[in-house]
Amino acid sequence: MLETIAVLAVFFILLMLGFIFYTKVIKSGVEEEKEENIQLSAIKIAQQAAALPELQCSQNNVIKDNCVDRLKLEVADNIMQSPENEIFYYDKFSFSKITVEEIYPNTKEWPLYDRPLDDYTHTLVTHIPISIFNPENDENAFGLMEVESYLK
């Protein structure tokens, strides 16, 4: 009788350990996948922001990479934050904040989009160095596009 109880006890201990082990492995995999998806989504938003046709520089219809047109920048916030375009930009940028900042030769900031998540726990910030081209005098400034994704 005692032997049977001992064997059963050992069996259940092994079963329990196996279950704990299995749960840990599954949980670790799910969390890793979730983190990767969050990061990929932040990258996607940053790439979409950097390639916005509303801001891109172009000369003779040729788009210049990594460049933002200053004249477009001056009016972009009106377009991007107007209520009629809210859904269009929400589909692109979800819950995030996008600003462009000139850091050389002068300093200036252009807030473009801001839709915070009410109960966010942390944010992922991506900085994209860009040229800010002024077509009026053909000069370039050094700037940063800051894309901040709100996360729960």
Partner: peptide, 20 residues
């Protein structure tokens, strides 16, 4: 991703920057 893009974008933007 950020590191891979950073060096390229930084240098690209710097070389095109106009003096003050």
């Amino acid at each position: 991703f950020t590191q891979a893009e950073l060096a390229s974008n930084m240098l690209d933007a710097f070389l095109e920057t106009t003096a003050r």
